[in-house]
Write a protein that binds this DNA or RNA. Structure first.
Lengths: 141, 141
DNA sequence: GTTTATGCAAACTCTTTGCATGTAG
DNA sequence: CTACATGCAAAGAGTTTGCATAAAC
């Protein structure tokens, strides 16, 4: 069982070492991000962060998310509808299943599919820098 | 060698049978779409369609693309940056490699990867309705 | 003739930015 | 103390929409 506070501590350390200032607002956002079990968008992160610190503005949420993404501690996804959604970067890459009826997002990882992608790209003379695989699904009866 | 005019003819037929009116503007857009070897966005399609019919407005381009997508003759993609990009629906599904240096988009199809996706979804109790696989790549040296 | 599509401009959503002020290191 | 981060409001990009007019069937 990984404790969220450990994650936050590791993240703030990584940020400071990257020359990034850890402000009250950024601490609030980091806490909200590490505690999120879902994939919230910027507005939702703003709402959650304001509970912890009501001075957090939406502009800062966006600016901070950009910084966190650049520092590699957050991943940005854009699923089929709506704006960008965010999650704390997982050291192990995973893909997503989107339940088109409920909107729920499920993570999965499959080494075979990762390897196949690498092979396909290589056959075409390419090396994968990053990729995106989303399965839009419906629950089986 | 498939002739573009055949494609357009088939598409207009499908549209009329779907109760959709085929206007001058829609004809221009269909022609531009079938002749496109790339994946243009709405603004680019607007530019190209205006060469054929200068009364085509951007609003109509958007409205028509929505109709064409609903009728199944066009696919809409949203790659990592910029707005939506469109292509005539391919009867055989394909995925995309995006060259991150040039922006070029290459299509590919791989049955094994399609099958793997189906298996993964099934294992989680899901059936795939549609999916999206994009490989953001760099040319190998 | 009816019903649907169009152009235009305004509105909308999501995101970014300029600027004066605040604050982390 | 100085450089960087912030809030606010305004601007931006991409897309949609209300309305009066035009045209497909």
């Amino acid at each position: 069982m990984k404790k969220p506070q450990d994650k936050t501590a590791r993240m703030t350390k990584a940020l400071r070492e990257g020359g990034v200032r850890v402000t009250r607002q950024r601490e609030a956002l980091l806490k909200v991000l590490t505690e999120a079990a879902d994939h919230p968008d910027a507005a939702e992160l703003h709402r959650r962060a304001q509970v912890l610190d009501d001075t957090v503005s939406l502009a800062t949420v966006y600016r901070t998310l950009t910084v966190l993404e650049r520092e590699g501690v957050v991943h940005r996804h854009s699923f089929e509808s709506g704006g960008a959604r965010f999650e704390v970067a997982d050291p192990v890459h995973h893909d997503h299943i989107v339940d088109i009826d409920t909107g729920h997002i499920i993570e999965f990882r499959n080494d075979k599919i990762e390897e196949l992608q690498r092979l396909i790209a290589a056959e075409m003379g390419y090396e994968i820098v990053h990729h995106r695989l989303e399965l839009y699904c419906r629950k089986l009866a």
